[in-house]
Deep mutational scan, measured.
Amino acid sequence: SSCPGKSSWPHLVGVGGSVAKAIIERQNPNVKAVILEEGTPVTKDFRCNRVRIWVNKRGLVVSPPRIG
């Protein structure tokens, strides 16, 4: 992607959502990480300053967080 800084975090799958949020925002200060339960409807727009963290009912990351 053409967004500045780190853009994906595949190693965070299985980690707690709040831990993942802290790591992502520390590694790329340009983004705001948002924790969402899988299945939550979201907009389809692409934004360089957003990372969606998809978690299951136990709050664990279920897919690699990435910019968008």
Rank of each mutant, 00 (worst) to 15 (best):
S1C: 11
S1G: 14
S1R: 08
S1H: 05
S2M: 09
S2P: 12
S2K: 11
C3A: 14
C3K: 14
C3E: 06
P4A: 14
P4S: 13
P4W: 10
P4I: 12
P4N: 11
G5Y: 09
K6H: 15
K6L: 15
K6F: 14
K6T: 15
K6Y: 14
S7Y: 10
S7H: 12
S7T: 14
S7L: 12
S7N: 12
S7W: 12
S7R: 13
S7C: 13
S8W: 10
S8E: 14
S8T: 15
S8R: 10
S8I: 15
W9V: 03
W9Q: 03
W9K: 04
P10C: 03
P10K: 06
P10E: 10
P10V: 06
P10Q: 06
P10A: 10
P10H: 02
P10M: 05
H11I: 04
H11E: 14
H11R: 10
H11W: 10
H11M: 09
H11A: 12
H11D: 14
L12S: 02
L12H: 01
L12D: 03
L12F: 05
L12A: 02
L12T: 04
V13S: 02
V13Q: 01
V13E: 01
V13K: 03
V13G: 07
V13L: 07
G14L: 01
G14Q: 01
G14S: 01
G14M: 02
V15H: 11
V15K: 11
V15L: 14
V15S: 07
V15G: 03
V15R: 10
V15T: 09
G16W: 09
G16L: 12
G16T: 14
G16I: 10
G16Q: 12
G17S: 04
G17I: 00
G17A: 06
G17H: 04
G17N: 00
S18P: 13
S18R: 13
S18I: 08
S18L: 12
S18A: 14
V19F: 12
V19C: 04
V19Y: 11
V19E: 15
V19I: 13
A20E: 02
A20S: 02
A20L: 02
K21V: 04
K21S: 04
K21D: 00
K21I: 02
K21T: 04
A22D: 11
A22W: 10
A22P: 00
I23R: 03
I23K: 05
I23L: 11
I23M: 10
I23G: 03
I23Y: 10
I23C: 08
I23E: 09
I24F: 00
I24S: 02
I24R: 02
I24G: 00
E25L: 03
E25G: 01
E25Y: 03
E25M: 04
E25Q: 05
R26C: 08
R26K: 14
R26F: 09
R26S: 09
R26N: 09
Q27I: 06
Q27P: 02
N28G: 01
N28Q: 04
N28T: 06
N28C: 11
P29Q: 09
P29N: 06
P29K: 10
P29S: 09
P29L: 05
P29C: 05
N30H: 15
N30T: 12
N30V: 07
N30W: 11
N30C: 13
N30D: 13
V31K: 03
V31H: 03
V31G: 03
V31Q: 05
V31L: 14
K32I: 10
K32W: 04
A33Q: 00
A33C: 15
V34M: 12
V34I: 14
V34Q: 07
V34H: 08
I35F: 08
I35R: 00
I35S: 00
I35T: 03
L36S: 05
L36P: 00
L36C: 11
L36R: 05
L36H: 06
E37M: 11
E37H: 07
E37C: 11
E37S: 08
E37T: 12
E37D: 08
E37G: 04
E37A: 09
E37F: 07
E38Q: 12
E38V: 11
E38K: 09
E38N: 04
E38S: 07
E38Y: 07
E38G: 03
E38C: 08
G39Q: 06
G39K: 06
G39Y: 02
G39E: 03
G39L: 03
G39N: 09
T40G: 04
T40Y: 07
T40M: 07
T40N: 04
T40C: 07
T40D: 06
P41E: 12
P41Y: 06
V42F: 05
V42N: 06
V42Y: 07
V42P: 05
V42K: 05
V42M: 07
T43I: 10
T43N: 09
K44L: 07
K44S: 12
K44F: 06
K44P: 13
K44C: 07
K44Y: 08
D45A: 06
D45V: 05
D45G: 08
F46N: 10
F46R: 08
F46V: 11
F46I: 09
F46P: 07
R47P: 14
C48Y: 08
C48F: 11
C48Q: 13
C48D: 13
C48W: 10
C48E: 14
N49E: 10
N49I: 01
N49Y: 04
N49H: 06
N49D: 15
R50Q: 15
R50N: 15
R50H: 12
R50G: 12
V51R: 02
V51E: 01
V51Y: 03
V51I: 05
V51S: 02
V51A: 06
R52N: 11
R52P: 11
R52G: 07
R52E: 12
R52K: 08
R52M: 12
I53C: 03
I53Q: 01
W54D: 05
W54P: 04
W54M: 10
W54Y: 07
W54V: 09
W54K: 02
V55L: 03
V55P: 01
V55K: 00
N56Y: 05
N56F: 00
N56W: 00
N56D: 11
N56A: 03
N56E: 04
N56M: 03
N56K: 03
N56C: 03
K57V: 03
K57C: 05
K57N: 11
K57M: 03
K57T: 08
R58I: 13
R58N: 12
R58Q: 13
R58G: 11
R58P: 03
R58L: 12
G59M: 02
G59L: 00
G59W: 02
L60N: 06
L60H: 06
L60A: 07
L60Q: 11
L60T: 10
L60R: 10
L60E: 08
L60V: 12
V61K: 02
V61T: 05
V61Q: 03
V61S: 02
V62T: 12
S63P: 01
S63R: 12
S63V: 11
S63Y: 11
P64Q: 05
P64C: 06
P64V: 11
P64M: 04
P65N: 00
P65R: 01
P65Q: 01
P65E: 00
R66S: 11
R66D: 05
R66W: 05
R66H: 15
I67H: 03
I67C: 15
I67K: 15
G68I: 06
G68V: 09
G68L: 06
G68T: 08
G68K: 02
G68R: 04
